[in-house]
Design a protein around this nucleic acid. Structure first.
Lengths: 336, 336
DNA sequence: TCCCATGGTCGAACCGATTCGACGAATCGG
DNA sequence: CCGATTCGTCGAATCGGTTCGACCATGGGA
C-alpha cells in the first residue's frame, strides 16, 4: 500500500498520484477522480517517514515536560492539554519528552534526531541547560516560562511578580498588615525555578511598598505539606491574618491547617493565590485567585512556535500575562 | 551533518559508518575510533525519518488519550505518566493523540500514517470504534481498559466489579445496611464507559449477596457535582450510612456534603472508594480506598505492546488487577 | 499560419539512512 | 603450502515519498 501501488492500479505514474494529492501541479479531473477512488478503496495513507525525509519537516512538535515521576500540577496539566489541543488544530502531532534526571536520552533524541520541527519547553529555570542546548542546536523552540535573561528566545509566561504583588495589594487594601507567602518547594526555588523567585520578588516589593510585615516560606507541592507548613507558620507567627500563595497543590492543606487552628475563612483569615480556575473553584470555599489562562498561553506558545518554524530568522516574540484576580470566597476585611 | 559527511571526514564509506554505529558487522578498532571521533566532534545524530523509512519501524508509540478538552482525572494522569516513563526506559518516544470529537484526524494520522510502531489506547468503551479501527488496521495495540468482549485484543484493566464488590463487603462487615454507589457521570455511563458499568454490576451483586439496601447514582467528575449529588442523595435517602465511589474527582464534594449535613466521617458515615493513592492521601481525612496501581498498569501496558510489536501473531495477553483496600480514615462501624 | 504558453503527464533524481553482495587481505586447518 | 573462512570495507540497491526537467497535445494571440 504505497504510492507505487496506487499509481499502478490507477494506470498513472507515481508523480501524478503525488500531484493529485498535494495539488502542486494540475491534474485532469478524470485522472484525479480515478486516483482518489483507488486510494479510497485501498485506504492508502502516505508514509509519514518518507514524506518527512523528502520534505525535511516532520509535521510534529516536541513537548518537553518535567520528568513524569514528579506529579504534574493542575496548571501544568492545563498547559499540556492546551498545547496538544492547539497542535491538533494545526494538524500537528505532539511528541512527549520527559526531561531531567534519567530522561536526558529522550530529550537528546528529540532535539538532535530531527524528529520534530520545533519544541515547546515547560518548567524553565532561571538558568536552564535545556534552553542552552536548544539555542546551540538551532531548533526552533518556545518556552512556557523564561530564563533569567530571555531576550534570545521566544516565550510565554505568567507574570508572577506582578500577580503576587497584586495579591498583596488586594490584602493590604482589605486592611491586612501581617501576611505570609506560601511559595513552591524549597528544592524548586533552590534549583532556580523562575516562578518561585519572581513570586518572592513581587511579594517583597509589595510588602515594602505598603509597609507591611511579610514572611515567606517554601512548601512542597501537596496538601499534607501545605497543612504542616501552615500550622508551623501560624505557630511561629500568630499575628498573621492572610496568606498569598502560588502553590495550588498545597492550598487544600492550608485550608485544613486554618480550620484546625480555629480560624474561619474568610472571617478570621484571608487567602489569595494563583491557580488554575478549575482548581480554585473546586476548593471549599472557592479560592480567590488569579486564574491561570492555561488555554490561552498554550495556544499562544504553539502560535509562536509555528512562526519560528516558518521563519527562524524572525525576531523573537513573547507574551507575559497577568490575569486579574477572580474574587471568590476566601478574602475579606481584616478584623480589627 | 548526515552520514555521508561523517564518512567523508573519516575517510570511509557510508556503510562503514553505519556498521560502526549499529555494530551489525565488524569494524576495525582504529576505524571505529576515527568515526566516533568525527561524530562526536560534529554532534551527528542519525536522521530519524530516514532510519524509520528504511527499517520500517519508528521507535515511537502512540498514546491515545481522551480529548484534551475533557479534564484528565488524577488516575488518567497517572497512566499517562507511567506510560511515558516506561516508554522512555525502553528508548521509545511517545506520540500523543487526542481522540474523539474533533480530533479524529489526529487519531487517523497516528493509526494509518505509519507514524508509530504501536498504540496504547486509554478510556476504552464497552463498544469502541477506535478499537475496531485498530483491529482492522492490523497495527499492534494495547488497551488500558477493555471492550465488552475483549478476547481479540491485549489489555490491562482494573477489576472494577471486584473492587466495588469488595468495598461493599467491607462496609457490610462494619455493619452498614444502607449504602450508596457514587458512580462516574451519567454521560460516560450512557456512552458505554466500562468502569461505570462494571462498578454498577459489582455493586448490585454484592448488595444482593449481603442482603443490603443499595442505591446507585451517577455524578459528574468534579467536586461541585459531588457535593450537589451527595446532598440530593442524603435528602432522598436519609437512612444511608455509607458511600462507595469510583469517582475520585467528586470525593472532595462528597466530604463537604456530609459535613454540611452534620455527618462526621467516619463516626457517623463511612466512605470507601477506588482512587489514585496520591489523591486518597491528599483528601482530609484520607480516603480509605483501593489504590489504583497506575505505574504498574502503565508499565505493563508498554510491556504488552512491545511484545505485540515483536511478534504480532502471538496470542493476546491481559492483566486484570484488583488492588486491596488501603484502610485510611474514612470507614468505621455503623452506629446502632 | 506559426509560435508560445499552458495543461497534463511521465521518468528520474533525491532525501539519509540500512543492508546485501562482492572483494581483497589476513588467518587457519590439514 | 593451498583452499576455505573470516575480517574489514566498499559500492549499489532500497525504503516511499516529492519535485524537477522534459515531453506532447491543445489552444489562443499575433
Amino acid at each position: 500500500m504505497n504510492i507505487g501501488e496506487i499509481a499502478k492500479r490507477a494506470g498513472v505514474s507515481r508523480s501524478t498520484v503525488s500531484y493529485a494529492l498535494t495539488g502542486r501541479r494540475p491534474v485532469s479531473p478524470e485522472t484525479k477522480q480515478r486516483i482518489l477512488a483507488v486510494i479510497d478503496e485501498l485506504g492508502y495513507r502516505p508514509n509519514a517517514a518518507a514524506r518527512a525525509l523528502k520534505e525535511g519537516r516532520t509535521r510534529t512538535i516536541g513537548l518537553v515536560i518535567p520528568p513524569a515521576s514528579t506529579r504534574l500540577t493542575d496548571m501544568q496539566l492545563g498547559f499540556v492539554a492546551s498545547v496538544v489541543d492547539a497542535a491538533a488544530r494545526a494538524d500537528l502531532d505532539v511528541l512527549l519528552s520527559p526531561s531531567g534526571g534519567e530522561h536526558d536520552r529522550s530529550f537528546e533524541r528529540v532535539v538532535t534526531g530531527q524528529r520534530v520541527d520545533g519544541v515547546i519547553v515547560m518548567e524553565i529555570r532561571l538558568e536552564d541547560d535545556r534552553v542552552a542546548r536548544l539555542m546551540a542546536s538551532g531548533l526552533p523552540f518556545v518556552g512556557i516560562g523564561r530564563t533569567r535573561d530571555p531576550d534570545g528566545m521566544s516565550w510565554v509566561d505568567l507574570d508572577y511578580e506582578t500577580l503576587i504583588a497584586r495579591c498583596v495589594h488586594h490584602l493590604a487594601d482589605l486592611g491586612h498588615r501581617d501576611i505570609a507567602l506560601v511559595n513552591r518547594s524549597a528544592e524548586l526555588v533552590a534549583a532556580g525555578y523562575g516562578p518561585g523567585h519572581r513570586a518572592r520578588a513581587g511579594f517583597d516589593r509589595a510588602v515594602a511598598e505598603r509597609g507591611l510585615r511579610g514572611v515567606a516560606v517554601c512548601c512542597a507541592d501537596d496538601a499534607q505539606a501545605g497543612q504542616a507548613c501552615t500550622e508551623h507558620l501560624l505557630a511561629e507567627h500568630p499575628e498573621l491574618t492572610a496568606i498569598a500563595t502560588v502553590n495550588e497543590a498545597a492550598a487544600a492543606g492550608v485550608y485544613h491547617a486554618l480550620a484546625r487552628t480555629g480560624r474561619e475563612v474568610p472571617r478570621d483569615f484571608s487567602i489569595v493565590g494563583v491557580a488554575a480556575r478549575h482548581w480554585a473553584e473546586n476548593l471549599h470555599p472557592p479560592l480567590t485567585a488569579a486564574d491561570v489562562p492555561a488555554v490561552e498561553l498554550g495556544a499562544h506558545a504553539v502560535d509562536l512556535l509555528l512562526g519560528r518554524i516558518a521563519d527562524p530568522a524572525a525576531p523573537h516574540r513573547h507574551l507575559l500575562v497577568a490575569p486579574p484576580i477572580s474574587l471568590r470566597a476566601t478574602t475579606g476585611p481584616a478584623r480589627p
